[in-house]
């Protein structure tokens, strides 16, 4: 389980997160939704320690992130997999090397064992015969899948996905969503996903948290989100004329 407790974060005078408390459950897809600029990515980066938290704390299991030293943080991070918005694959390495990289750094496995694990992870995300390709030779969807393969290579306990299907066509986005859900359930990972895609919410949203202007406005799941009478949430969920008409707004 991951817990954010009363987290606040400002950049200069701009308060991006204001007292946000939220729990993310293990073995489930925990979605954080909200408009662009609402503070989703900042919350995620605060939780994984890429941004320093001004107030509050992030808890991984029983470990309090904000009280950790640099070296303690490094150990916790080896249990974290993260899928970045653009994939963040290493340009100088091919697909196989990208997936094997964390294994090379933190395990004593032989090259054969690492290769076997990399091939398993790549097959898990339905990628074959791409081992020797460079990131620049991959499509957007393939990059995301390689990034997922790299993120799960070390059997992480926690998986963070920042806009996993942004810039993808609806079909590929759906494939990526379902892949993350399958992996989450299969390995009992605590998965946190930032998105503003309502298809993802309906498809995989076991637990949904809505952030608006840096504050947590609503929490529920995919079954209750459409029934909510929260005005801000409805403005986000039913953003088009058609959906607003159907909802009767």
């Amino acid at each position: 389980m991951i817990e954010a407790i009363e987290i606040s974060k400002s950049f200069g005078d701009n308060k991006v997160l204001d007292n946000v408390s939220v729990k993310f459950e293990a073995g489930r897809c925990n979605l954080v939704i909200g408009q662009s600029g609402s503070g989703k990515t900042v919350l995620m980066k605060c939780l994984v320690g890429l941004f320093e938290i001004d107030e509050g704390r992030g808890i991984f299991g029983e470990k309090v992130l904000s009280r950790m030293s640099f070296d303690e943080m490094k150990l916790v991070r080896q249990e974290i997999g993260m899928l970045f918005q653009g994939g963040a694959l290493f340009d100088s390495m091919n697909v196989e090397q990208n997936v094997m990289f964390p294994l090379s750094m933190f395990t004593e496995q032989s090259i054969g064992e690492r290769l076997e694990r990399a091939n398993f992870c790549l097959s898990r995300v339905n990628l074959e015969n791409v081992n020797k390709l460079l990131p620049s030779e991959l499509s957007g969807g393939m990059k995301k899948r390689v990034a997922i393969a790299r993120a799960i290579a070390m059997n992480p306990r926690y998986l963070f996905c920042d806009e996993p299907n942004s810039g993808l066509d609806p079909h590929t986005a759906n494939v990526i969503d379902n892949l993350i859900k399958e992996i989450t359930e299969e390995y009992g990972i605590t998965t946190v996903i930032n998105t503003h895609d309502m298809n993802s919410v309906i498809e995989i949203g076991d637990r949904v948290s809505f952030i608006h202007e840096g504050k947590l406005w609503w929490q529920g799941d995919r079954d209750t989100i459409l029934m909510s009478d929260n005005k801000e949430l409805n403005n986000f969920v039913f953003a088009t004329k058609l959906t607003r008409k159907i909802k009767g707004l």
Binding site: L50, A88, P102, F160
Partner: peptide, 17 residues
């Protein structure tokens, strides 16, 4: 370029300095 494309963040998340 590694910084702006989040490759440095990816290294950090993996537990690498």
């Amino acid at each position: 370029t590694m910084r702006v494309t989040e490759q440095i963040d990816a290294l950090e998340i993996m537990g690498i300095n």
